[in-house]
């Protein structure tokens, strides 16, 4: 038994030694949906970027919104696909960092409010006042569509923090869990990223008898590509422009499905000023 083990150890050790050689260009992405397929999909994106940038590119998987911000702060990644809030947090922590692109849909992103059928609530164009006093589930605490924006609209329409206007408030950790929990009736109402809802609906995972969408929030800016500030110095003049161009010119539907977005359009830090303001109002940022 021991001999083959030793061989395996040596092989792995060598592999590790070789792969550590040379410093590649790295990027990460917040794990907000279909996390289990992220690696596969983003490895394709890495290949595409490597081809366009003519450097080695590697995708670094992370487990949470906060971890993606940390990786960016620590310069473990030079590029990141952030949510609205995590992007603002990362750029606040790293001087010179800037948003360079966003998905076409991200200019006008929305959140869906869901309700269990026992609430008797149904879809309406107005903010559903009937959710007050019920139990409510957000997504991940650091999510823009699952936490920040829904909380903002709740405060705006119900005039208080979620903990005061709902009987119970939970944080599910992911959009998919939010849907499952509202569908099971464990929580009566919840907020979810509309893209995840649409995807799960198309995949037949949602039982319309038990859970329904009751309100669409007004649009807000969300996901974005954010780049470290000093890349031209370390990677050569014009590198930042080439990264931006590579992202904006990505047109392979297979690659875009990783996000999933129709295409990328230019973005700048100011596009997210409203997000930052809201985060400060809610007390999520200093």
């Amino acid at each position: 038994m021991r001999t083959p083990h030793l061989w395996l150890f040596t092989a792995v050790a060598l592999l590790v030694a070789f792969s550590a050689y040379g410093k590649p260009f790295t990027f990460t992405a917040i794990p907000d949906q279909n996390e289990s397929r992220l690696r596969e999909r983003f490895d394709k994106v890495a290949n595409y970027l490597a081809e366009r940038l003519e450097v080695e590119v590697r995708y670094i998987p992370v487990k949470s919104y906060a971890a993606s911000v940390t990786a960016f702060k620590n310069n473990e990644v030079q590029l990141a696909w952030f949510g609205g809030l995590s992007g603002v947090q990362a750029r606040a922590a790293v001087p010179g960092a800037r948003a360079i692109a966003q998905g076409d849909e991200d200019q006008l992103f929305i959140t869906y409010f869901l309700a269990h059928d026992s609430t008797g609530l149904s879809e309406s164009g107005q903010f559903p006042q009937g959710i007050s006093g019920r139990s409510f589930i957000f997504g991940s605490k650091g999510s823009t569509s699952g936490r920040l924006m829904p909380e903002f609209f709740i405060r705006q329409h119900l005039g208080g923090a979620p903990e005061t206007v709902f009987s119970r408030v939970g944080y599910s950790g992911s959009h998919s869990r939010t849907i499952a929990l509202v569908q099971a009736g464990a929580y009566e109402v919840g907020a979810v990223n509309y893209k995840v809802w649409e995807t799960e609906l198309a995949e037949g995972k949602i039982d319309a008898q038990h859970v329904r969408m009751i309100w669409r929030t007004p649009p807000y800016p969300d996901y974005n590509w954010t780049l470290q500030g000093d890349l031209d110095e370390t990677w050569g003049a014009g590198f930042e422009a080439r990264v931006t161009a590579a992202l904006l010119e990505m047109d392979d539907p297979d690659l875009l499905a990783a996000f999933p977005r129709a295409k990328f359009v230019p973005a700048k830090n100011e596009d997210y000023a409203s997000i930052k303001e809201i985060a400060q109002i809610i007390g999520l940022m200093d």
Binding site: H116, S118, S135, A180, Q183, A184, G185, A186, D207, H210
Partner: peptide, 10 residues
């Protein structure tokens, strides 16, 4: 205890 429709997920 609030049980509504957990059976699908379970």
């Amino acid at each position: 205890i609030i049980t509504l429709s957990p059976w699908d997920e379970l």
